[in-house]
Design a protein around this nucleic acid. Sequence first.
DNA 1: CCATTAGTTACTATAATAGTAACATATATT
DNA 2: AATATATGTTACTATTATAGTAACTAATGG
Lengths: 262, 262
Amino acid sequence: MPGKQEQYFSKTLEKGLTILNLFGRENPSRSLTEISTLTGINKTSTYRLVNTLVQLGYLRKSITSKSLRIGPKAFSMGHECFHGFDIYQGIKPIIDKTFFEHHISIDSALIDGYKLISLYRREMPNLVSFHLPLIMDELYARAMGKIVLANLGPDDLEHYFADLAPQKLTSHTLVDIDEIRKDIRNTRKRGYSINDKEYMTGVISIGAPIMNLQTKSVVGAVSLDFPSREYSLDNIEKQYISVLLTLATEASDLITTAGIRQ
Amino acid sequence: MPGKQEQYFSKTLEKGLTILNLFGRENPSRSLTEISTLTGINKTSTYRLVNTLVQLGYLRKSITSKSLRIGPKAFSMGHECFHGFDIYQGIKPIIDKTFFEHHISIDSALIDGYKLISLYRREMPNLVSFHLPLIMDELYARAMGKIVLANLGPDDLEHYFADLAPQKLTSHTLVDIDEIRKDIRNTRKRGYSINDKEYMTGVISIGAPIMNLQTKSVVGAVSLDFPSREYSLDNIEKQYISVLLTLATEASDLITTAGIRQ
DNA sequence: CCATTAGTTACTATAATAGTAACATATATT
DNA sequence: AATATATGTTACTATTATAGTAACTAATGG
């Protein structure tokens, strides 16, 4: 018999969704064995779940290689889940307003595990148009990442550092763990984060947290991005911190009302 | 014991995904009972599945009203499923190329049941910017819909007509079933479809099928859209049919290689 | 305040899944 | 080309998860 707590939780559905989540921009194609080993679900069950997803059109299977790819149904569901997300619809006007008032590049993201999911972004043409990823890994090297880390509980933060292997993305990127820790501590004191060309050469950013004001936990972040040719860090801190913090407050209000919990 | 055919199909996963599919741009919020009645899944099972989706972050539940909405996890999965769909990535450059060469509005879609899922679209500023839906119902009134219907097998087509209730979207929309049937027959003979202001006033479109060349079945469509103020139908047919058909052929090649089956 | 509806929990028969193992098909190597 | 190796598919039950009924509790509305 199932435990009392787990009685109203479907493991099968969880597994099916785990499988679907293995596919994305970075991993458009996978094999059955790959799926089985990655998820830890035994081969027969994987076969059953994959077969279900294929029959429903969420995945499709190459007849020759048997490799699996995203299907049209997942595409359309993706469409709907993206555009049906009220937070996305809610943050759009907030960011647009600030964008048109101040003519600066703005980004926003939500936490998902130790990753940031890009929520909505507006870019000025003066910014080197960098094709930012939808899911961001390098929290230590980004304004939004730093402010999120700075607002995490101590346990969560340690867990993050436990298997962190920082990459030197630019000449300014901090890769020494102690230096990163120090930077996070400073960020926490400061209340906003600074990214001085650490993620991309020529780009300076400042970041502030999106908080659930009820649970007092961080759920995401917003950032303002500037080309270092036109703006100095001093300049940005004098002129734009209040803009950033106002934006973060508005976003936090939205999130709190919507009841997003980390 | 499960039947031999159904042994490798997970009904639970199917139900869970059916529930997730109830949410979207049009329906951002739903209640448990609503979900239960819409899906036909009994209340307890619905509760279990919804609870699972909530715990995993695909849905979130308002603490006060208990109403359910799309969660951050579904948003990020949506993101990934959308951008990880290789057909989308593949058709983008094809459509972009034609767009920049000919400066015309182009649309593409895939079949999902008796609906069309918008795949990728480029729009000229001269076109009344109509906010097209992601999932299109009115096949009878659209260029892409008509050419898809014209290429359906007789059984599928009859099934479509069986519960069709055409809406008069513009003064030009055909609503008489016999007239629509006749139009579909003409479309089939012609090889491409014509939409003469039947979906939107002021918009003329031509459509061609995206075919899986191996299975010889239709899987989607492309269309070129023109403002009727600037273009006449004669004009369009003389100038752009070859552009349309070339585009359709390129898309069909892509689809066939990718192995999309209807 | 009561009636009605919606959401949650308890319980158990039934049906679905997990897991093992055998089998088949594809891929790589000699 | 033949064998070896890996990958995918099917068969077969024990186990366990789910469906469904029903009772219960918390909201909501008149």
